[in-house]
Design a binder for these strands. Structure first.
Length: 428
DNA sequence: AATAAGCTCAACCGCTGCGTT
DNA sequence: CAACGCAGCGGTTGAGCTTAT
């Protein structure tokens, strides 16, 4: 599909034979060549090109075809030489190291294929671009990452098909419960994001899409709990009265719009059994539920140290380590009640390797660390206490849908870690 | 064995930037 | 300063190959 011309806004394909006058300035494209050969190169043509360049160098690409006795345009010759015939080109599959390098460079440079190619001796920009488009991009999408930003995808409507695919994949290989939980949790969390976007002035198409989707629940996920349409609509109607979800820390004043839920409310909501995905995922923090009496819902999250598990996974994988390092920059941490923004840039690797803190802090915009306990747990590790603030509407919604454990798991893990879990599942 | 669907990658395309006239 | 010429870049295409049905 050709893009519209930026100069005259008509189809560029229409210009190829008879371009408008203003398009003839500046250069004479070889697409206008008369009688010059196009398409795949023959061995004879390759031989002529190689022979000529080895003898004379390429010099002016425009002049080369004539001098080399080729019925091609200079551009075609240059492309054939740089992408295929150059003697220093490395052939064959990309190594895992090359793959990591591409991922790292792409996260920093974007689609600057030639710049990326400079760091991969023997690989051409074209080859790297193809490899990205056919392999790496898909891989990232499957893992729940946005291939452009290299961050966990927060766009529900974009990420949901991948989660469904993940769910189906895992069902096929016998881990239905884990995949279901990951999909459900991402499903719910992205509902929150969608709602939050609407709250922040996004257009209403998201709402329309959501309505359409809720009206026809996917047959692919029969275990997904039915969503109460009335409740959702009612919830969305209330959203404008709620503060933004993901701003941390949130002051008491900012929370005045919350309708809060107490322990009784939670206990009275009939929840479905929630199987925590312990078998393949990092151990969940055991979260006893206690409700404060003030106007917020604050609960303690006492976590065991999961350093060993996470470091094994993260430290051995440069890409995941970098990804995790970025997590921390999402939010600020608080140490002994004092904001500590200067720690935001600290990598998760360092945090996990050198401290005894639970990673349940990590960059979470949901979770605020209140203060560390001074006593050690049975393993001699200092647990972490965190305060959590969420609206009662969402609490009710998630508890009603998937049970109380789901709420805590959700709050604890945050979107990025859920995406990470998805990648762990895919790797296992 | 035949066909369809999916994938790969060489080659093409238009555009941009930069040096020259 | 504008017009021109060229090399290089990133996006896209489609022929050929592979895999699934």
């Amino acid at each position: 599909m050709s893009k519209p011309c930026v100069l005259c806004f008509s189809s560029q394909k229409n210009h190829q034979d008879n371009p408008p006058l203003k398009h003839r300035m500046g250069r004479s494209p070889c697409s206008n060549n008369n009688g010059l050969k196009k398409g795949p190169w023959t061995p004879e043509e390759d031989h002529k090109l190689v022979q000529y360049i080895q003898k004379h160098g390429h010099g002016s690409w425009r002049a080369l075809p004539k001098l080399a006795g080729l019925n091609r345009c200079g551009k075609s010759c240059r492309l054939r030489w740089t992408n295929y015939l150059r003697p220093d080109i490395k052939r064959g599959k990309f190594s895992p190291e090359e793959e990591k390098t591409i991922l790292n460079l792409h996260s920093a440079l974007g689609n600057k294929w030639s710049a990326i190619a400079m760091h991969l001796p023997g690989r051409t920009d074209n080859e790297i671009k193809n490899f990205w488009n056919t392999h790496l991009k898909k891989k990232l999408i499957q893992m729940g990452f946005d291939p452009m930003t290299h961050r966990p995808r927060t766009d529900f409507f974009a990420a949901f098909p991948q989660l469904l695919a993940l769910l189906q994949l895992r069902e096929l290989i016998g881990h239905q419960a884990e995949a279901s939980q990951v999909a459900k949790l991402q499903y719910f969390q992205d509902l929150l994001h969608s709602a939050n976007r609407m709250n922040n002035g996004f257009n209403t198409s998201t709402s329309i899409e959501l309505d359409a989707m809720l009206a026809s629940p996917s047959p692919l996920i029969p275990s997904l709990p039915a969503v109460d349409h009335d409740m959702i609509n009612g919830t969305f109607n209330q959203i404008e009265h709620l503060p933004p979800f993901f701003e941390a820390p949130v002051s008491n004043e900012a929370n005045q719009g919350f309708n809060l839920i107490n322990e009784e409310d939670i206990n009275n909501i009939p929840g479905t059994a929630f199987e925590s995905p312990h078998s393949a995922l990092p151990p969940l923090v055991d979260v006893p539920l206690t409700i404060q009496e003030d106007d917020r819902s604050i609960s303690n999250c006492v976590g065991n140290d999961t350093t060993s598990f996470w470091s094994e996974l993260l430290l051995d994988d440069q890409f995941m380590a970098e990804f995790a390092g970025n997590l921390i920059r999402f939010g600020s941490r608080e140490e002994d009640g004092m904001a500590s923004d200067e720690k935001d840039g600290q990598s998760l690797v360092t945090t996990l390797g050198e401290s005894r803190e639970s990673p349940c802090f990590s960059g979470s915009r949901w979770l605020r660390k209140e203060k560390p306990l001074t006593s050690m747990d049975d393993c001699g590790q200092a647990p972490v206490v965190a305060s959590i603030e969420v609206s009662s509407v969402w609490k009710k919604k998630v508890v009603n849908s998937w049970g109380e454990d789901a709420l805590w798991w959700l709050i604890e893990k945050d979107e990025a870690l859920i995406a990470f879990h998805a990648s762990v599942l895919l790797r296992s």
